[in-house]
């Protein structure tokens, strides 16, 4: 089977809408297909990786720890756009998993390389 390059582009903050969780579930399910998967976090999507989320008071399941499971699913290519972090007063230290921080140009170039891009 030929391997294709898949990228999941995450652009929404978690918990305020269902996009982040839906994306994460699709990523976990499709991990079984052994493709070349990259996750991109841009715009408000960078908040998905924010440390210290506590969802008890909003009575919503806290899926932040699940991003730490991605490594075990062999999903190791996580990219975060530098400009998106900066616009939100965040740095790499605020994130709960290891990522590669890219500037906008590099992120755009990486998107161009993909066979399939799924946007959430």
């Amino acid at each position: 089977m030929t391997t294709k390059k898949f990228m999941f582009v995450n652009r929404k903050a978690p918990y305020g809408s269902i996009y982040a969780l839906e994306s994460l579930e699709v990523v976990l399910i499709t991990a079984a297909f052994d493709q070349d998967v990259s996750l991109a976090f841009v715009d408000d999507g960078v908040y998905q990786l924010k440390k210290g989320c506590q969802t008890k008071a909003i009575e919503t399941k806290n899926f932040s720890p699940t991003y730490r499971a991605l490594d075990g699913y062999d999903i190791e290519k996580l990219y975060v756009e530098k400009e998106s972090l900066e616009a939100r007063g965040l740095t790499e230290d605020d994130l709960l998993v290891d990522v590669t921080v890219l500037d906008s140009q590099s992120m755009g170039a990486l998107m161009e390389e993909q066979d399939v891009v799924l946007s959430f």
Partner: peptide, 11 residues
């Protein structure tokens, strides 16, 4: 407890 999901068989 750690990851808030049940893992796939392979994992």
């Amino acid at each position: 407890e750690e990851f808030q999901i049940a893992p796939a068989v392979r994992v």
